[in-house]
């Protein structure tokens, strides 16, 4: 059977990828620093590969503690927004 030109290079690259993904990367995962980082992320249910906020495990809505520490809408803006003209 005649293989198309470049088949050897494709097979070599495929073998290299298989070695990396199934051999090297799993070993690296056992490195203590990496294992600790991944364990922390898994425990907090973080999806580090999310491209957009909708892919996160938890939708990032305003945390309840934030308003105790930051004035999200200053008085003047809040007064403009309220129907009576006052906050």
């Amino acid at each position: 059977m005649n293989w198309p030109p470049g088949s050897g290079r494709l097979a070599a690259l495929g073998a290299a990828a298989a070695l990396l993904w199934c051999g090297v990367f799993p070993r690296l995962l056992q490195c203590p620093a990496l294992a600790r980082h991944i364990e922390l992320m898994d425990r907090r249910e973080v999806n580090p590969a999310a491209m957009y906020y909708t892919e996160l495990e938890h939708l990032p809505l305003r945390p309840p503690w934030l308003e105790r520490r930051v004035r999200l809408w200053p008085a003047a803006v809040a007064a403009m927004a309220s129907p009576s003209g006052r906050e």
Partner: peptide
């Protein structure tokens, strides 16, 4: 990247992670 923002924020602490994710959103 959004996921990287959350991962970096959570590495810093829960509060930082929540603010980071919301700013990114």
């Amino acid at each position: 990247a959004t996921g990287a923002v959350v991962a970096a924020g959570e590495a810093l602490g829960k509060e930082a992670g929540q603010v980071a994710a919301t700013v990114k959103m």
